[in-house]
Amino acid sequence: MARIIVITSGKGGVGKTTTSASLAMGLAQRGNRTAVVDFDVGLRNLDLIMGCERRVVYDFVNVINDEANLNQALIRDRRCDDLYVLPASQTRDKEALTKEGVGKVLEELAQTFEYIVCDSPAGIEHGATMAMYYADDAVVVTNPEVSSVRDSDRMLGILASKSRRAETNAEPIHEYLLLTRYSPERVARGEMLGVEDVQEILSLDLLGVIPESKSVLNASNSGVPVLLDPESEAGQAYSDMVARYLGEQLPHRFLEARKRGFFSRLFRE
């Protein structure tokens, strides 16, 4: 049985695509056949973050409309044999993803893949509800900031009421919290909500805390999921996240502000 994981948030720009790319890569690296699907119709980006934008021929909507079959649209990752990308369509027709169409494609993917990672668009409209509808697990990507936390909570309401699992009274979607763009220094100075604060408000299973890191931009510039950068703290935090998702118990890292040396404290402007 394939597991369908939605990466969602409500608020835009919090790190869903970054997370989708790294989670999919991490699962595949561990030998799980994984497909990562871009649901952001009209704003295709996942292919860029995965570095396969020049190999896009057909997309998700082509498959739904029977203009191409799944094998023609799936792009095999050059770094990892178990990883495939299904790009989003650039059509401006937001309704191109229908519940039946999405269901059909996911069902076909489920026959050959163990994990299907769905990169949701921002918002709580059609695209976002399509991305989460069939999910078994949800990773709610949240920044330690008021509007992001609030939108995450609203997304939890939608996961609990509008998903297939909710509508069929099946076991509810397993919801995980992933805190991203976390800056321990700013938390220590009382400028930013800390991980406990966000946990207290959302009370979800904490899958990981990804620090704010320049390496994320570097990775996206070069089309490499940041998880593949072993030097990067964000990359390491994403690796931990994947291990936790697969059931390993790991302590959360990079939560403490780095100690400043005496001199750097003296001479900081």
Binding site: V149, D153, R154, V187, R189, G190, D197, I201
Partner: peptide, 25 residues
Amino acid sequence: PRPKGSSAIAKERLQILVAHDRTER
């Protein structure tokens, strides 16, 4: 003692807001 940063206010506001959103839902 460190002055209370704005994150404490953020948390307080969020707790109220989220409780309100949830009853609404």
